[in-house]
C-alpha cells in the first residue's frame, strides 16, 4: 500500500461515487434493515415458544417494540399478551397512555403488581431505590412470569444502552431461577436463534438489540408512533433530589418543610418510577426538536436513572439476578 505518492489522503484507489452501493443493492435503508431484523426475531419466537409474552414498560422503546409486533404479524394481531409489571410508582401519564393504547389496538394486557411488596409498604422513598426496584420490579416480574408460565418474554433493551448489554445475546437464556449467566451464553450466529428451553427455563428476547437511541427516535418520527407525552418538554412541577429533577407526580413524595415544587420546562429521556427518574431541562416540545437535541447532547440516556449509579457494574449484577 505504501508508495511514493506524498498525498496522505490519496483516495484514488477507492470508488467514492459508489459508496452507497450497499444500500442500493439491498434496497433497504438503515432503519428498514433494523425493522426487518426485529420482525424476523419476533416471528422466530412466536413460532418456537409455547407461551410468549411482551414486556410492555410503556416507554419509547416499548412503543417501538409494540409497533414492530403489529408489523411482524399483520394482518394477524400480535398473538401474545402484553405484560406490565406495575411498581405502583409509575408516572400517572404512563398508566393513562398504557390503557388508552391497549384499548385502541384491542390487545390483551396483563398488569402485575407484587402484592407482597404492596403489603409490606415497599416504596422508593421509604426503602431506597435498590430495595424498591428489586421487590417491585425484579421480584414482581419473576412472579408474573411464573404465575402465567411464560417461556419467552420480549424486552425492549438495546445494546447501546449500557456496557454489559453490549454483550448480551438477542435470545438470552434464563435458568429456572431466572438468572442470566454472562459467561455461559448460547452462541448466536447468523440469524439462527435457539429458543428451546426445558420446563421452568425461559428466554428473554431483545428484538431491539441492534438499535441505538437515535434509531429509536428516528423510527418514532418516521412511523409516527404514539409515545407518552412526558417525553416532550412542558412546564412541570419538580423538586431537586440527589442532583436529579424529580417530578412531583402525586402527594407521596415527601417535601421538606417549606419546600415547594418549582414549575420548570422539562422533559424525560427515559421513563420509569417517577421518584427514580430525573427530568432534563429542555425546550424540545416535538419530535424534530427531540432529535435535534439528541444530536447535540453529551449525556447518555441512562444517566437519568438512579439505579445504575451505585457502581460501574451494577447493571450486570442486576441482570444476573433477573432484572430485565
Amino acid at each position: 500500500m505504501a508508495s511514493n505518492n506524498s498525498d496522505p489522503l490519496d483516495l484514488e484507489t477507492l470508488d467514492l461515487k459508489n459508496r452507497t452501493k450497499l444500500d442500493v443493492a439491498n434496497g433497504l435503508t438503515h432503519l428498514q434493515q433494523l425493522e426487518a431484523e426485529s420482525i424476523h426475531i419476533m416471528r422466530e419466537v412466536m413460532a418456537e415458544s409455547d407461551k410468549p409474552v411482551m414486556l410492555y414498560s410503556i416507554g419509547k422503546d416499548s412503543s417501538v417494540m409494540l409497533h414492530l409486533a403489529l408489523k411482524a404479524f399483520y394482518p394477524s394481531k400480535p398473538p401474545f399478551p402484553l405484560l406490565h409489571v406495575d411498581t405502583t410508582w409509575k408516572f400517572r401519564e404512563m398508566i393513562e397512555f398504557r390503557d388508552k393504547r391497549v384499548a385502541e389496538l384491542g390487545l390483551d394486557l396483563i398488569v402485575h403488581i407484587n402484592a407482597e411488596g404492596v403489603a409490606q409498604g415497599i416504596g422508593p422513598f421509604s426503602h431506597g431505590s435498590a430495595v424498591h426496584t428489586d421487590v417491585m420490579k425484579t421480584q414482581g416480574l419473576k412472579q408474573a412470569l411464573e404465575k402465567y408460565g411464560f417461556d419467552a418474554a420480549f424486552g425492549g433493551a438495546r445494546r447501546d444502552e449500557e456496557k454489559s448489554r453490549a454483550k448480551e445475546r438477542i435470545f438470552s437464556f434464563r435458568n429456572a431461577q431466572h438468572r442470566w449467566d454472562p459467561k455461559n451464553q448460547r452462541p448466536e450466529l447468523w440469524h439462527i436463534y435457539n429458543g428451546r428451553v426445558r420446563q421452568g427455563e425461559s428466554i428473554r428476547v431483545f428484538p431491539l438489540s441492534n438499535w441505538t437511541e437515535l434509531d429509536i427516535w428516528q423510527y418514532i418520527y418516521q412511523e409516527a408512533i404514539p409515545i407518552v407525552p412526558l417525553y416532550f418538554a412542558k412546564k412541570r412541577p419538580v423538586v431537586e433530589r440527589d442532583g436529579m429533577k424529580i417530578l412531583v407526580d402525586d402527594d407521596r413524595i415527601p417535601l421538606a418543610t417549606g419546600e415547594s415544587p418549582r414549575e420548570e420546562l422539562v422533559r424525560f429521556r427515559t421513563l420509569g418510577c417517577y421518584p427514580l427518574t430525573g427530568a432534563i431541562s429542555s425546550t424540545a416540545a416535538d419530535l424534530p426538536a427531540i432529535i435535534e437535541e439528541m444530536l447535540v447532547t453529551r449525556t447518555s440516556e441512562r444517566q437519568g436513572r438512579a439505579i445504575d449509579h451505585d457502581e460501574s457494574s451494577s447493571m450486570e449484577k442486576k441482570k444476573q439476578e433477573g432484572y430485565f
Binding site: 452507497t20 450497499l22 438503515h30 432503519l31 425546550t283 424534530p288 426538536a289 435535534e292 444530536l295
Partner: peptide, 22 residues
C-alpha cells in the same frame, strides 16, 4: 421549535440514505 423541523427532515433523509457496515 417548529423551525427546526426542515433541518431535521433533511438530516433524517441523509441518515436514511446511509448504508450500514458490519
Amino acid at each position: 421549535m417548529a423551525d427546526s423541523a426542515p433541518d431535521v427532515e433533511k438530516y433524517l433523509q441523509a441518515q436514511s440514505a446511509k448504508s450500514t457496515l458490519r
